[in-house]
């Protein structure tokens, strides 16, 4: 059903663009703005990345006539709509559309990892303090988990969910022997995860694959927001029912959160977002400010952008 609707929309858009004639890019046209819906983590990261955080959860700040689509539909729309502009996660980018350089930097996995491409946010984790575990077993399992998520096998799971895993040079198999806890039966133990809800899908995929690799340890994912990553592992809620063993945050740690031991926190991935346009669009590079003006409606035509 959804597919049919998407198809119909595409056909409709196709007719409109055909009707306009296909003789090159007419820069006096209005940019047609595509966005994810307000519940999307990508939208949140995008809006904050371009300095338009107020619009993360508020459609009324966007330019009139914007279209709300999911990741794939935005991609497809950009293959047809010459004047369209949208954003997707980097992992979905292919050569049917044009990925715009952000602040002059090309959107590639290399540029994300060497930290030059800016339209991205880090996915972080935080463990409990070293002397604050209910048992030695669960502490060892938690550390095995961190080793797993930094392995090639963990990285594959992260990449499969659309984020960019940090580079790795070892497999889980090669480090399993250094985590003997995982060779026993751990089905009576529960590892509790919490924190950011935009990492939930990745976290759940990691948990699901980790469990059989570490003696079928029970995993519990309860994601409530990045702030709880610290609060529920080392902060004021760590000893309550909602306390967690590992918390995720979809932003860098800050303030109080940095007053924790260095070896209890780290990064697992980048979430990179690419602004995409039609291949015929002459624009190659946009700044955060320019993108914000397009999305807020300050720029009325592509001409305004190009100037």
């Amino acid at each position: 059903m959804k597919k049919i609707i998407v198809l119909l929309v595409l056909i409709a858009i196709g007719f409109v663009t055909l009707g306009c004639g296909n003789d090159g890019f007419d820069s006096s046209q209005r940019p047609s703005v595509y966005t994810r819906d307000t519940t999307s983590g990508t939208r949140d990261g995008f809006m904050k990345g371009i300095g338009f955080g107020d619009a993360a959860a508020n459609d009324s700040l966007l330019v009139d006539g914007f279209a709300t689509r999911d990741n794939n539909a935005i991609m497809q729309a950009m293959t047809i709509d010459e004047y369209g502009i949208g954003y997707i996660s980097l992992a979905s980018l292919n050569d049917t559309v044009k990925g715009v350089n952000f602040n002059g930097v090309e959107p590639t996995v290399e540029n994300v990892i060497n930290d030059t491409y800016d339209l991205k946010r880090p996915f972080m984790y935080m463990l409990r303090a070293n002397d604050d575990w209910e048992s030695q077993e669960i502490k060892e399992i938690a550390h095995a988990f961190i080793a797993f998520l930094h392995s090639i096998d963990g990285g594959d799971i992260i990449n499969d969910q659309g984020a960019v895993a940090l580079p790795s040079n070892y497999t889980w198999e090669s480090v399993r022997d250094t985590h003997p806890i995982c060779q026993g039966d751990n089905s009576a133990l529960t590892l509790r995860f919490g924190g950011s809800d935009s990492i939930q899908r990745i976290a759940e995929a990691l948990s699901a694959e980790f469990s059989p690799r570490c003696g079928n340890v029970v995993t519990e994912n309860d994601h409530t927001g990045s702030g709880d990553a610290f609060r529920r592992t080392q902060g004021d809620q760590k000893d309550q029912v909602v306390g967690k063993h590992i918390g995720y945050a979809s932003r860098p740690f800050r303030g109080d959160e940095l007053n924790t031991p260095d070896d209890t926190r780290g990064q697992l991935a980048w979430d990179a977002i690419v602004v995409i346009i039609h291949k015929d669009n002459p624009v190659d590079s946009l700044t955060a400010e320019q993108i914000k003006r397009i999305y807020s409606g300050e720029y009325e035509t592509w001409e305004d952008v190009i100037e």
């Binding site: 090639i152 594959d156 799971i157 499969d160 497999t171 694959e209």
Partner: peptide, 15 residues
């Protein structure tokens, strides 16, 4: 099948 990993090339993923 969620993933196939190899020795000599990048893993094949669901996506």
């Amino acid at each position: 099948v969620t993933r196939v990993a190899f020795f000599d090339q990048p893993s094949a993923l669901t996506r």
